[in-house]
């Protein structure tokens, strides 16, 4: 029953027999309409992308309270904060002295010890290696601490000193210092 359809041999062209002015007017109109539509499509894309950014409950400052009463000198404790480990170390006097004595020129990521510590003898750093994200060793007394007495990352051999600064190995930056606040001598709120 169906006739085979021959493709239209000469479809009405855009200009047609009318004056060219009509054609350019149509092209301008099409340009405006097309741009408008393009803006619309762009506007549609943003909500989808932004929905993948951290949601409001994730952003709401999730903080962790730590009681450091039982962390003796020379000891360290690891707490979870925003899904990552945070090292809280009770530094010995020797460790503090060593950290302060390092000249800035020796550091790949120069930072003074004072800039990284708000209340002695506590050092609080995020326990994520700044190279590719492994958790460095050095929290337990049986762990290797690297050549600088701080932490050692076994994945690719980054060495951190007693202020958590990168001294040797592929990591580009010092261990991050999170925002924290001592609410008392023994209570610290991280984040």
């Amino acid at each position: 029953m169906a006739d085979t359809l021959a493709p239209s041999s000469s479809p009405p062209t855009t200009g047609g027999p009318h004056a060219p002015a009509d054609g350019t007017k149509r092209d301008f109109l099409k340009l405006v309409a097309g741009s408008f539509a393009a803006v619309g499509v762009g506007a549609i894309v943003w909500p989808f992308i932004h929905s993948m950014n951290p949601a409001k409950d994730v952003l709401a400052l999730a903080s962790t309270d730590v009681d450091v009463t039982h962390v003796a000198e020379g000891q360290a404790v690891t707490v979870m904060w925003r899904g990552k480990p945070v090292f809280v170390r009770h530094r010995t006097a020797k460790e503090i002295e060593e950290a302060k004595a390092v000249p800035l020129s020796e550091l790949r990521d120069p930072q003074t010890d004072q800039a990284r510590v708000t209340r002695e003898p506590w050092l609080i750093v995020v326990g994520v290696c700044t190279h590719l994200g492994c958790v460095p060793l050095g929290q337990k007394s049986t762990d290797p601490r690297g050549d600088y007495g701080g932490w050692f990352c076994p994945c690719h051999g980054s060495h951190y000193d007693t202020a958590g600064r990168i001294r040797r190995g592929p990591a580009p930056l010092n261990l991050a210092v999170p925002e924290y606040e001592f609410r008392s001598d023994t209570q610290v709120r991280i984040g």
Binding site: P12, K25, R26, L29, A33, F36, A37
Partner: peptide
């Protein structure tokens, strides 16, 4: 408002394209 404007523009283009039909 955006769609109303876009609708007007699109309809105008449609009329222009279909004018000789």
């Amino acid at each position: 408002i955006f769609l109303a404007i876009l609708g007007g523009l699109t309809y105008a283009v449609k009329r222009k394209v279909w004018a000789n039909v």
